[in-house]
Amino acid sequence: MHFLSFVWDPSKGIDLGFFTLHYYSMMWIVAFVLGLAIMKRIYKHENQSDASLDSLFIYSVVGIMLGARLGHVIFYQPELFKEDFFSIFLPFSFKGGIHFTGFQGLASHGAAIAMIVSMYLYNKKVLHKSVLWILDRVVIPVASGAVFVRLGNFINSEIIGKPTGSDYGVIFKQLPQDMQVPRHPAQLYESFSYVFVFLILWYFYWKTNKSEQQGFLFGLFLVLLWTIRFCVEFVKEAQNAERADWALNTGQWLSIPFILIGLYFMFVYKPKTELS
């Protein structure tokens, strides 16, 4: 009997009769709504229009969700391209009949890449400043959103940690019986750590002049978030064993380039001076 363990067996969501409102989906909604509120305050401080903020919200939601989904499929579940193609883009599984699944299987690496691409398009079509100007600011609400996404993963009993090998840990009752042992709550480790990423970025934006150093806040975000991701992967079960059985796992290998890019923008990058 595990006296120091915590048994986790929540419902997946609220049953509304015709479909279930998943708590995981609600966490994404909270992430985007909170992010909008944070960005609204930043845009007011920067004297940007409400219209440009509305466009930013649309570009962010579409870009991040699409990138997160494609990232998961490409890096962890590429067989879906052949076996159940439309399930990649729709909240349904069509394999063996039509089943409502909600939007699940989202990868943060894909979301990060899509965020950069969508901000490039947003800047080109709407903002007309520089990509790094918007990236330096949008990473603040993104960091706050990451807190709730990982809480959603915990609620779903997914992206689980490895067994602790002791009585300490969380027992995920929704896992198969042979996997119901005390495990590291890896999702909570990440979620708690991302709170500090948000607070650090918030401090540097409001209390220092680092927002004027183009690329610094974006680089700081990459270094902090992906270093945390890299470290937590050591106590996290591999999402795809076939892709994670050599030296480091897939998540760690994918994190390293982001950390290096972040260091570059923090300490090496020099913006091009505009000719008058």
Rank of each mutant, 00 (worst) to 15 (best):
Y194Q: 08
V138S: 15
P91K: 01
Y205E: 11
W8V: 01
N156M: 07
I261M: 13
M266G: 05
Y203M: 12
E242I: 09
D178I: 09
W133L: 08
T227A: 14
F81H: 10
K125D: 13
N153I: 05
E190Y: 02
F204T: 15
K272M: 13
L135H: 08
T101D: 02
Y203V: 12
Q77L: 13
I88S: 02
F221C: 09
T250W: 00
A244H: 03
D178W: 10
H22N: 05
F100W: 09
F267D: 05
L66G: 03
T227D: 09
I160P: 00
F19P: 00
H22W: 03
L175V: 13
D178M: 07
S157P: 04
D84G: 02
S255N: 09
Q239R: 11
F86S: 06
V138T: 15
I116V: 15
D15Q: 05
F204S: 10
I155C: 01
S5V: 04
E242W: 08
H2W: 13
K125F: 15
T20C: 01
G13E: 03
L90R: 01
Q213G: 08
E190H: 05
W226I: 08
L224E: 08
K125N: 14
C231H: 06
I58P: 03
D136T: 12
P163E: 06
I64F: 04
N123E: 13
V117Y: 01
S193N: 11
W202S: 11
F230S: 09
K40E: 11
Q214P: 05
G71H: 01
F196K: 12
I113A: 10
G67Q: 02
F103K: 03
I171R: 07
M119R: 04
Y269D: 07
E233K: 06
S87F: 00
D9P: 01
L151D: 00
D136L: 11
H184L: 01
K272I: 13
L175A: 14
L220P: 01
I155A: 04
L132S: 03
S108N: 07
L4M: 08
V195I: 15
N153C: 12
S118I: 03
K125C: 08
L225M: 14
L70W: 10
W133I: 05
I113D: 02
E237G: 06
I88E: 01
N156P: 05
W206T: 11
A241N: 10
I98N: 02
Y120W: 15
Y24R: 03
F196G: 14
V117G: 03
K162T: 14
G215I: 11
P271H: 10
N156A: 14
Q48E: 15
V268H: 09
L225E: 08
M26R: 01
L70S: 10
A112N: 06
S157C: 11
V30W: 02
S166E: 08
